[in-house]
């Protein structure tokens, strides 16, 4: 299945060819953990991870056409 991935800030370096927004093919029944593994993002790296605009944990199952966004935790403003 195809999902859309967007990596911002410090996470850009994990993107293929450093393109911050890209399509990714995942095996069926993948979850967030699987996605991080494929992208070589260490689990312990502090992050805010959204699936379709909502926060998601490692076990969250992914569906075709999901939009996954990852950026560093922030504060301020």
């Amino acid at each position: 299945m195809d999902v859309q991935v967007k990596l911002y800030g410090l996470f850009k370096k994990y993107a293929p060819e450093e393109r911050q927004e890209f399509q990714l093919k995942l095996p069926p029944d993948s979850n967030v953990k699987k996605l991080l593994k494929i992208l070589n993002i260490p689990f312990e790296q502090e992050r805010t991870l959204l699936v379709n605009g909502q926060l998601a944990g490692l076990e969250r199952r992914l569906e075709s056409e999901d939009i996954i966004v990852i950026f560093s935790p922030m504060s301020g403003g």
């Binding site: 967007k6 800030g9 410090l10 805010t48 605009g53 922030m74 504060s75 301020g76």
Partner: peptide, 19 residues
């Protein structure tokens, strides 16, 4: 983990609010 506030200032928060 470098602090977003230091790296990009408060305007770094746009990434969060947009998404």
């Amino acid at each position: 983990t470098p602090l977003g506030l230091t790296v990009n200032g408060t305007a770094g928060v746009v990434v969060a609010t947009q998404n």
